[in-house]
Design a binder for these strands. Structure first.
Lengths: 202, 202
DNA sequence: GGGATCAATTGAACAATGTTCATTATCAGA
DNA sequence: TCTGATAATGAACATTGTTCAATTGATCCC
């Protein structure tokens, strides 16, 4: 025991987060235990509490990493699109791809029940608003000047809707018979909603 | 202490479920513990395991009750509407009202992480498919004959989207600044999506 | 080098969890 | 009143998150 300089403080943190992510991907948030995570990185449970406030923070940090990845993938998918509708479709696709790639982690993202009263930490909220900004930027061209409020609203509606689709479809909480692929549903949502926006503009 | 015949078997079950619902409404699923629930109904923890397989079943039964209520409210809201679009709007409103009425319970409905491998029990899946049928019936008039598949898809897309909106808006997982009321978002979704359906038909 | 200081790491401890099951106290019928 | 049957118990077990005094290695200064 005592200090063992096997890892520098910051390396140990990322090591722990990597292990936590591996565990959550394989067994869900349920599988993430203090003792389990400690064993995985070759340290004792107490050590974890020197670098994180509690287990909840660990899960939240892993989720934040996922959000970063999502932001990167979405931004990349948008980059090469000719117009706003194509960009939105690409974004929805990238979203579903992300969700499909690691269902366990993805579920953890939304199943995570934040403690009763207290709010999300700032460093977490920041990543969420950043994603919304992305959606708003894509939608902006579809609204004329003065349409900021409608754009703002549409971004949130579409985002929430995509989240609902990915959440229900992947958790297989939709009806078991006649499972629709999440991608098909996402396409339907984006195409129809955009058609609606265009129709109402005229 | 032995049998006490204070309650008949079935009464005790409903008594326990009522208490469980009260607890979950007030403190979320997190607050529902075996000992707590037992104390609340004046029995011992062990007794719970004579009427339920485990705590998970208790939470699932409470959720099933919520789904029943939702079905009732949706059906009532639909009944008096003149046309399909109005009915859909009413449905979305009723959905959000339900969510708003008891946020704690509602969150529990979707935050509930079902055990890793095994599926939802039949008596639970039944309530879900029943809700989907309702949505499909409302949408059917908007699709001509031969549009069954599109109708089926739209029902699931709209349903998932509503779920996403209620889930994110109520859990305040949307960005904290500029909170949109869930009702506004639901209206936007339904109106725009329906406009899109109409536009694509022509 | 060697002693003093500092801080990282530990592991035992605590309270609380879900779940099981032998034991017990009571009821229902003869 | 006696006799099964059975509802209810609560102690027991393994496991959880979290804390914190104690310990032990590293670091610094002389």
């Amino acid at each position: 025991m005592g200090r063992r300089n096997d890892h520098k403080r910051e390396d140990l943190r990322t090591l722990a987060l990597a292990a936590a992510r591996r565990i959550m991907a394989a067994e869900g948030v349920r599988g993430l235990t203090a003792r389990r995570l400690a064993r995985e990185i070759g340290y004792s449970p107490g050590t974890l509490y020197n670098m994180f406030e509690n287990l909840d923070e660990v899960a939240l940090r892993v989720n934040a990493g996922l959000l970063d990845e999502l932001h990167g993938r979405l931004a990349a998918a948008l980059a090469s699109q000719p117009d706003a509708p194509a960009a939105l479709r690409a974004m929805a696709r990238a979203y579903m791809d992300c969700a499909r790639a690691e269902p366990g982690l993805w579920n953890a993202l939304f199943e995570h029940q934040l403690g009763e009263g207290r709010p999300l930490p700032d460093w977490y909220e920041g990543r969420i608003t950043r994603l919304f900004r992305l959606a708003e930027e894509v939608l902006a061209p579809l609204f004329g000047p003065g349409g900021e409020e409608a754009c703002h609203r549409s971004a949130r509606v579409l985002w929430s809707a995509l989240q609902g689709i990915s959440s229900l479809a992947l958790a297989r909480k939709l009806d078991p018979l006649a499972q629709l692929p999440a991608e098909v549903m996402a396409d339907d949502l984006v195409d129809t909603y955009l058609a609606g926006l265009a129709a109402r503009r005229a």
